[in-house]
């Protein structure tokens, strides 16, 4: 399973937990559209720290980088390059 699929499944899980059963594409906005709440960005952060070894204290946190699955995937890719 590649990383974008894993991320998709994780985000889909967060949405399902909120009772959001609408379809989700990789480019859909998560926070600006109100589908996920700002506190839930923390869930994604913890997931990325744990599974991709991203250190947000080092690279800085910007919620825009988590606003879609594509953006999260791009973040994991760039973080891997830096590492």
């Amino acid at each position: 399973m590649n990383s974008i699929t894993e991320i998709h499944e994780f985000v889909q899980g967060l949405l399902t937990g909120n009772g959001d059963e609408k379809p989700l594409t990789d480019s859909d906005s998560l926070f600006d559209s109100g589908r996920l709440q700002s506190i839930e960005a923390i869930e994604i952060v913890l997931y990325l720290e744990q599974n991709f070894g991203i250190d947000f204290a080092k690279i800085g946190f910007d919620r825009e980088q988590l606003d879609s699955i594509e953006a999260i995937h791009a973040l994991t890719q760039s973080a891997c390059k830096i590492a």
Binding site: S38, A41, A57, F61, R63
Partner: peptide, 16 residues
Amino acid sequence: FKELLVEFFYYPTFFR
């Protein structure tokens, strides 16, 4: 208001 609290207090504390 919740966004304000999260942006300026929650996130900075969480990452530090």
